[in-house]
């Protein structure tokens, strides 16, 4: 049994009085213990919705409108509020995109760490404090003791993200969901933070769902990749396989658009057009208006995910290499 098995997950937002639009249109995902999965896609593809839906944290007016999130064989979506709280921040932790707004500005770092521990463990204040300082040291925060009494605004963005990572690790979780953990950071420290997350996950045998726009980062950190487009998974498989031989035209486009692929002085490739908003999806494959291989069938029916790719005309190896 997989540690995490997401089955046919739907997330919907109301449109008008009666109608709804779907931000997730039936997503599947599975993850083994200690495995690292990259979730890649353009802005608006539904990556954050997937992350929040796993912990049943979709904010009003959105809702999980179907599917299951099986964690060790138990559907998280069926749990009581108290039950799911025992999972959140305890067995599954999250790291958010922007550390400048993730921490509460009026509470000290120490308060925000200790409250997490106390929500999940019977532990004395002194012991909790000791453990928090230990974790802050693990994420390489200088003078950890004094940082406990600091407020978030007294720390730089990089340090704040380290604090968030320390909080995520506090309870020895089995899975960390990191939603673009480096996007909001200074370019110079992005690699540092990414390396830290990777190191800590490896050392503690923590599984990771890494959400990002950047296929390059995913290639270095994760073992498997899932490509999302307009609320659906369009391709899924081992990182090496997908990087070397993408089968969905969209994946191939993303790879071609990587800066490393362009030669010196050459213009960066860009996939023509843009992803349709969830309120105006074309019939059939959502990618068809941008796809050079699109045929009548692509414009009529949504291709099912089969053999790791949701496409009626998957690329063959030699095509992808071109």
């Amino acid at each position: 049994m997989a540690m995490l098995e997401v089955q046919d997950l739907h997330v919907a937002f109301p449109r008008g009085k009666r109608d709804e639009v779907e931000a997730l249109r039936g997503v599947n995902l599975h993850l083994e213990k200690g495995e690292r999965l990259g979730v890649v896609g353009e802005s608006g593809a539904g990556k954050s919705m997937l992350a929040f839906a796993i912990l049943n944290l979709i904010a009003d007016p959105g809702r999980v409108s179907g599917g299951r999130v099986m964690f060790h064989g138990e559907n998280l979506l069926d749990l009581s509020e108290r039950g799911i709280r025992g999972i959140r921040g305890n067995r599954i932790s999250m790291i958010f995109q922007d550390p400048m707004v993730t921490l509460n500005p009026v509470l000290t770092i120490g308060t925000q760490m200790i409250e997490t521990l106390k929500a999940h463990r019977k532990i004395s204040d002194a012991e909790a404090r000791k453990l928090c300082i230990e974790r802050l040291k693990q994420v390489a925060i200088p003078s950890a003791e004094s940082r406990m009494d600091a407020y978030p605004h007294e720390l730089s963005g990089g340090l704040r993200q380290r604090v968030v990572i320390a909080i995520a690790l506090l309870t020895d979780p089995e899975l960390i969901i990191a939603d673009e953990p480096t996007t909001a950071l200074d370019v110079t420290i992005q690699a540092e933070i990414m390396a830290l997350i990777l190191k800590l996950c490896r050392e503690n045998d923590v599984a990771l769902i890494l959400i990002t726009h950047d296929l390059g980062v995913v290639a270095e950190v994760t073992e498997r990749i899932m490509i999302m487009y307009a609320g659906l998974c369009v391709e899924e498989g081992r990182t090496q396989d997908i990087i070397n031989a993408p089968r969905h035209p969209y994946t191939a486009g993303l790879l071609k658009a990587l800066p490393q692929k362009a030669g010196r002085g050459q213009r960066l490739y860009q996939i023509p057009g843009s992803m349709p908003p969830i309120t105006a999806l074309p019939p059939g494959c959502a990618y068809n208006p941008r796809c050079e291989f699109a045929a009548d069938r692509c414009r009529a029916t949504i291709p099912p995910l089969a053999g790791g790719v949701a496409c009626f005309h998957p690329l063959q190896e030699e095509e992808a290499a071109s």
Partner: peptide
């Protein structure tokens, strides 16, 4: 609706704590 309140919920804090310690304080 802020991120820090969302994060507080993602940490598994009680509804009471999220509302009064995290949201109301602000």
């Amino acid at each position: 609706g802020t991120d820090y309140v969302r994060f507080a919920r993602a940490k598994g804090l009680s509804t009471w704590r999220v509302r009064y310690v995290h949201a109301f304080r602000n």
